[in-house]
């Protein structure tokens, strides 16, 4: 796949992760991530969207080095992250930081949260002494609109979900990262505080030139924060490009369905038709053809048997491709 931008901070190069299934499905294999290639542009927000079980989180864990891919490479600033050792590995961990879905699971309930913050500063040698560490921590708490005395000596349960998620963002910011991997950072957060978290993330990109991989199933928030978007279906990226292009004019039937399923906050625009829910996920993963073919309204024999190629589409604002036989044959 070609580059999305001239200078990518992270290149995902033909990554595949195969999980072996035991027990009932003895001996079978499941490609949770299936030959995915994507670039994360410098100072850009890339959204990975898809329903649950589409491989988004597995991909994010591969990027963070928590899971080893079966094949393919992840290049961070042209360094293969699976081969990093010593100083370079420390630099990678310092510069690429995660934010997780449920802040109450991020932090140990028996450990005060300021210890995480100070610990990040000290162990990554951002600060030499405790007072320096405090200063650095206060700075990063400042970015998320909290102050040090709010978090000092407190356990996770003393915060609301929104506050604790901001603490977890501040923790990630302590090391002054270049790339944030945010896995569903607002799906557990209440609607009324959700936007402030998203605004903080957007501010990071603007003010501190950070790049963000934003993982979500909510296309509304993906549209709000991101520059580029990749739609995943059962391990494959089926459509990818500029967020404006993809979400205002989706081409792949799967992207179109995701968009149609958004609950519009307007009682005049209720869903008229019914949708078919997916049957067994494993069956869709194992299919030889397009992973969406079993649910696709316009699927034919070819879709069921052969994996479609990536088709490049015209786009004003950069690179765009779609993985669909219909587009490959007819063009769009």
């Amino acid at each position: 796949m070609k580059e999305l931008t001239d200078s990518a901070i992270l290149k995902i190069d033909n990554i595949t992760k195969i999980f072996k299934l035991g027990g009932l499905f003895f001996g079978s294999e499941l490609a949770a991530v299936d030959h995915v290639s994507l670039d994360v542009g410098r100072e850009k927000v890339l959204s990975l969207v898809g329903e649950s079980g589409s491989g988004k989180t597995t991909l994010s864990r591969i990027i963070l080095g928590m899971i080893e891919p079966t094949s393919g490479r992840i290049l961070y600033e042209d360094l293969d992250i699976t081969k990093l050792k010593g100083r370079e590995l420390r630099r990678f961990r310092k510069e690429v930081q995660p934010i997780f879905q449920n802040p109450f699971e991020t932090f140990n309930p028996f450990k005060k949260v300021d210890r995480y913050l100070l610990g990040s500063a000290l162990s990554f040698e951002i600060a030499g002494s405790k007072s320096e560490a405090k200063k650095r921590v206060s700075e990063s708490l400042d970015i998320v609109d909290l102050s040090y005395n709010v978090v000092e000596d407190k356990y996770p349960h003393e915060f609301s979900g929104g506050e604790l998620q901001r603490v977890s963002i501040a923790r990630a910011l302590v090391t002054n990262p270049r790339l944030l991997i945010a896995d569903e950072p607002v799906s557990m957060i209440d609607a009324s505080t959700r936007m402030s978290i998203l605004n903080i993330l957007m501010g990071l990109k603007r003010k501190f030139d950070m790049s963000i991989v934003y993982i979500t199933h909510d296309l509304d928030t993906a549209y709000y924060v991101s520059d580029q978007i990749a739609v995943m279906c059962r391990g494959c990226v089926v459509e990818c490009g500029d967020v404006e292009d993809v979400l205002t004019n989706p081409v792949h039937p799967y992207s179109q369905m995701l968009l149609k399923c958004l609950p519009e906050p307007d009682p005049e625009k209720r869903w008229k038709d019914q949708i078919e829910l997916a049957g067994l996920e494993v069956k869709e993963y194992e299919t030889a053809g397009c992973k969406f073919s079993k649910r696709c309204p316009s699927a034919d024999k070819k879709c069921l048997e052969n994996r479609p190629p990536d088709t490049e589409l015209e786009s004003k604002s950069g690179y765009r491709f779609v993985k669909c036989w219909k587009c490959a044959r007819e063009g769009v």
Binding site: S52, L258, P263
Partner: peptide
């Protein structure tokens, strides 16, 4: 805690 497609279902 469900994705949009399942939510709609």
């Amino acid at each position: 805690a469900l994705d949009v497609i399942v939510q709609r279902g």
